[in-house]
């Protein structure tokens, strides 16, 4: 449903993505793992055109486009079909939770206010934030903000939601509430690409895992197989490091 082919992106002479072929099918949850600096986030930002790739092709919902030469209009059309959840939430600070969720419906899709509010309230309910509808982002905890941000991303009924390390900026005790919401979405059949460091989430919720390092996809496999039987040396090293790290955490 969403596919990128031969994606290249560099900042200056630094090659951040060096030929990525990536694909997600309808209803699939793909976890993108990898050490810091491997290009995971850049991949998501290129797919959503927050960064412009030097080379690559995107096929989304039957539309096929060269990623380096694409019009602003086309980008907007792509984005209207996508949801994006940021590491730092990025809720509009001048708007309440409810207004945040409504904005994309009213301003970009011309849905009447009343209908938009109805949808927005429903979305807030879905993420368990209906009783905070009138709160401003500053008045919410990080976990609550991220849940509102997820409601905002879902409100426009996108074909795919991209999550960029959605729990990395949260206090450990707040990650659970966000992961629970994401798990619920996955169970409902939402197509999701999740860049994450949460191994438990990847293992439990993802259908497929993509492991990246140095701007390349090193290994990709169904989630269960990936964790049970990683094939590449790099992957084994990475998993050993993060999994024992996690053990050390719980041990402490």
């Amino acid at each position: 449903m969403l596919e990128v082919r031969q994606l290249y992106k560099s900042f200056g002479s630094e090659g951040v993505l060096r030929g990525i072929d990536f694909k997600v099918d309808k209803g699939e949850v793909v976890a993108v793992l990898g050490p810091s600096g491997s290009g995971k986030t850049t991949l998501l930002r290129c797919i959503s055109f927050l960064e412009r790739a030097q080379q690559g092709e995107i096929i989304f919902d039957e539309m096929r486009h060269d990623m380096s030469h694409i019009s602003k209009r086309m980008i907007r059309q792509f984005r209207m079909q996508m949801g994006f959840v940021f590491q730092t939430f990025n809720l509009f600070r001048n708007m309440t939770a409810l207004q945040n969720v409504m904005e994309g419906l009213i301003a970009a899709r011309k849905i009447p206010r009343q209908k938009a509010e109805e949808i927005a309230r429903e979305m807030l309910k879905k993420v368990g934030m209906e009783d905070r509808a009138g709160y401003y982002p500053d008045q919410l905890s990080g976990g609550q903000q991220q849940r509102v941000a997820i409601a905002r991303a879902m409100a426009t009924n996108p074909k795919v939601i991209l999550f960029d390390e959605p729990t990395s900026a949260l206090d450990p005790e707040l990650t659970g509430e966000v992961l629970d919401v994401m798990k619920k979405l996955a169970e409902e059949g939402t197509t999701m690409v999740v860049v994450t460091h949460e191994m438990g989430f990847a293992k439990e919720v993802a259908d497929r895992v993509v492991f990246m390092e140095d701007g390349l996809i090193v290994e990709e496999a169904p989630a269960e197989e990936f964790f049970r039987n990683p094939k590449k040396e790099r992957t084994i090293q990475f998993l050993r490091r993060v999994l024992t790290g996690a053990d050390a955490d719980t041990g402490a």
């Binding site: 907007r76 994006f84 730092t88 600070r93 904005e103 426009t156």
Partner: peptide, 26 residues
């Protein structure tokens, strides 16, 4: 913060709209 602009673009706002609704009020 640039994140405000990025979020606005990603929910489909056009530049004038994101200026009027998000950036200038902040």
């Amino acid at each position: 913060p640039v994140g405000q602009t990025e979020a606005a673009y990603l929910i489909g706002l056009t530049y004038p709209r994101l200026m009027v609704r998000i950036v200038l009020p902040q």
